[in-house]
């Protein structure tokens, strides 16, 4: 283990390009799902990665775990170059970094009892065998708040929340240090979401885990993330400590996202920034700032259309990719009320 100040995970200029074969009459156009992304995660830190569909957030999570091969760039996990490992070393690295998927039903084998699903990695990595393995499964079930009597159930016999707890127990079975949580509560009912979010917060504390929490909703990661990264069309728009993201967003896209989340309080219905248009076709991204066609900033100009803004640090730990970062969009009424609390 290296010194405490070094980041646990360092992502350097990561790019993932999908080459489509193109149609019969159209030229193949590559799709950059993740476009030159760099960041670091400190040990014990929890990062919220927020973006809409097509932003590349899921691909980024999978690239880091090398479930998808990157086109270029590097991922360094605790001094290990993840992309430079042979099959054996990669497999042992898998013990240290794990993933929880969005769809707990799809990510569990329907023909495998949930106890066996949690036990499988324990057997594969020879962590325990026989009764010890069974005891480990029982402990994991208890830790994630599942009745151990469910061990012999099939996934379809459990509720959505219970299935997601199985998914979490399975990820924890190899005792990882780092977890990618890919929209772990998006498929769950509101009343169950909170249970799972609290469980994840508890586990992080108890096991000193490091999280990359992927979400499409800024509200969900609010109470779990130390830092928030906002992604759009494969690029980072903003990366800043959570407190400042929610109260003083620097990027107009962040402001728009915050504004778009419906607030469950009829007294605080505010003027919204409603973004016009759709997310552009990622095969034909806009020139300059990828957000410029939808950007609500009143001062956007020619530069936004022609020059790609670099992600730069405009204040301590606050990074933004916007030419107009010096004059961020003000938050409209109602949104800032969180700051007062």
């Amino acid at each position: 283990m290296s010194d405490a100040t070094a980041p646990l995970l360092s992502v350097q200029r990561l790019v993932k390009e999908y080459r489509s074969s193109g149609g019969l009459f159209s030229r193949p156009s590559p799709l950059r799902a993740v476009n030159d992304v760099s960041f670091e995660i400190a040990r014990g830190e929890s990062i919220g990665l927020v973006g809409e569909s097509g932003s590349g957030k899921t691909t980024l999570g999978r690239l880091i775990l090398r479930l998808v091969e990157a086109t270029s760039g590097r991922v360094i996990f605790d001094d290990v170059d993840v992309f430079n490992l042979d099959t054996r070393s990669l497999r042992s690295l898998r013990r240290r970094m794990q993933i929880v998927f969005q769809d707990p039903f799809g990510s569990l084998n329907p023909r495998m009892r949930v106890g066996a699903a949690v036990r499988e990695p324990i057997a594969v990595h020879r962590i325990a065998r026989g009764n010890d393995a069974t005891a480990a499964v029982v402990r994991l079930f208890q830790e994630v708040g599942l009745d151990p009597s469910y061990i012999d159930r099939y996934p379809h016999e459990l509720s959505g929340g219970q299935r997601q707890r199985v998914g979490i127990a399975r990820a924890l079975s190899v005792e990882p240090e780092f977890l990618v949580l890919d929209e772990p509560v998006s498929a769950l009912d509101v009343s169950v979401q909170a249970q799972v979010l609290n469980l994840l917060a508890d586990l992080r504390e108890r096991r000193n885990l490091t999280y990359l929490f992927i979400a499409h909703d800024l509200a969900v990661v609010r109470h779990i993330a130390h830092r928030i990264v906002v992604m759009y069309l494969g690029r980072f728009m903003e990366m800043a400590p959570a407190a400042s993201t929610y109260t003083e967003p620097l990027h107009p896209y962040t402001s728009s996202l915050l504004s778009a989340v419906p607030v469950p309080d009829p007294r605080e219905q505010r003027e919204r920034i409603v973004l016009q248009g759709d997310m552009p076709d990622p095969r034909k991204p806009p020139t300059g700032c990828v957000f410029h066609p939808r950007c609500p900033h009143p001062k956007k100009d020619q530069r936004c259309r022609s020059e790609v803004p670099m992600l730069r640090e405009v204040a301590e730990n606050r990074w933004v990719a916007c030419h107009l970062a010096a004059e961020p969009l003000p938050l409209l009424s109602g949104q800032a009320s969180g700051a007062a609390n």
Binding site: S159, G160, G161, Q162, D189, V190, S191, V192, Q193, A194, Q195, L197, N198, A201, D217, L218, A219, V220, R222, H223, Y246, L258, V261, V263, P264, D265, E268, G334, Q335, S337, G338, N341
Partner: peptide, 23 residues
């Protein structure tokens, strides 16, 4: 309980209140 369980942008909390069990 439902109103308290929703993660909210406007009211950050350390811990969400939960409804035990499932629908």
């Amino acid at each position: 309980a439902l109103l308290r369980a929703v993660p909210r942008l406007d009211r950050p909390v350390d811990r969400l209140e939960t409804i035990p069990g499932a629908v």
